[in-house]
């Protein structure tokens, strides 16, 4: 069994915990940076990226999170989590953690009234994934080592670069756990290698 942390500063934490547990793994809500030493992988949940970032700084989480990712530990960011992971955010001078070589567009699909559900094809994971997009970002451009996992309407909405994965939509809001399961497989592999 692997132990997966969900960054618990703000946002849809409970849903990710539920998804991890229903896949038979151990979930822990991470509220202090010391907890990062005790987990095998980390999920950055949906929420408000500006709020989560401010709390990351407030609690001195920043360097610890960057190191956690750079050390090769798997991280999965959903929606706000994607924004936190991106190397570049269009229209903003500074990105956040800069752990994946993508350019992200915040609220790329518009305001809440434009939020939607759609069926996606996710490469190697699902042909018919029900995806919930809420004030979602999209990825405008990816670097050479980034694998595009899914697109919607010509826009990139899920990607992976080594140990870092992100999605613009919310797998935790549906009962379809295939993407989370893919992440758990990444965590298991990384744990094996570490051993």
């Amino acid at each position: 069994m692997v132990k997966i942390g969900v960054l618990g500063l703000q946002g849809a934490v409970r849903e990710h915990v539920h998804a991890i547990e229903s896949l038979g793994e151990e979930a822990v809500v991470v509220k202090h940076k010391e907890q990062l030493d005790t987990i095998d992988g980390l999920i950055l949940p949906g929420g408000e990226s500006t709020t989560i970032r401010r709390l990351i700084d407030q609690y001195d989480f920043y360097d610890a999170l960057v190191q956690f990712g750079k050390a090769g530990n798997p991280i999965f960011g959903t929606c706000a989590g994607l924004i936190l992971l991106a190397n570049e955010i269009i229209g903003q001078d500074n990105a956040h953690l800069g752990l994946i070589d993508i350019k992200a567009v915040r609220n790329g699909f518009g305001r809440q009234r434009d939020s939607f559900e759609a069926t996606l094809q996710i490469t190697g994971i699902a042909e018919d994934f029900e995806a919930v997009f809420i004030r979602a970002p999209y990825i405008e451009e990816v670097g050479p080592n980034v694998e595009v996992l899914a697109t919607y309407d010509g826009r990139i909405v899920a990607a992976q670069e080594g140990n870092i994965m992100c999605s613009a939509f919310h797998p935790e809001l549906t009962d379809d756990n295939r993407l989370t399961n893919h992440f758990i497989e990444m965590v298991k592999k990384s744990k094996l290698v570490a051993q």
Binding site: G8, L9, Q10, G11, A12, V13, R14, E15, G46, G47, E48, T51, C79, A80, Q112, R113, D114, S115, F116, E117, A118, T119, V132, F133, I134, R135, Y152, H170, L173, T174
Partner: peptide, 21 residues
């Protein structure tokens, strides 16, 4: 085909606000 204004999209928006002010 995309669907807007579904319960999941509307309730999900509030889920993202959890733990916040």
């Amino acid at each position: 085909m995309s669907k807007v204004g579904t319960d999941r999209v509307k309730r999900g928006m509030a889920e993202m606000q959890k733990g916040g002010v």
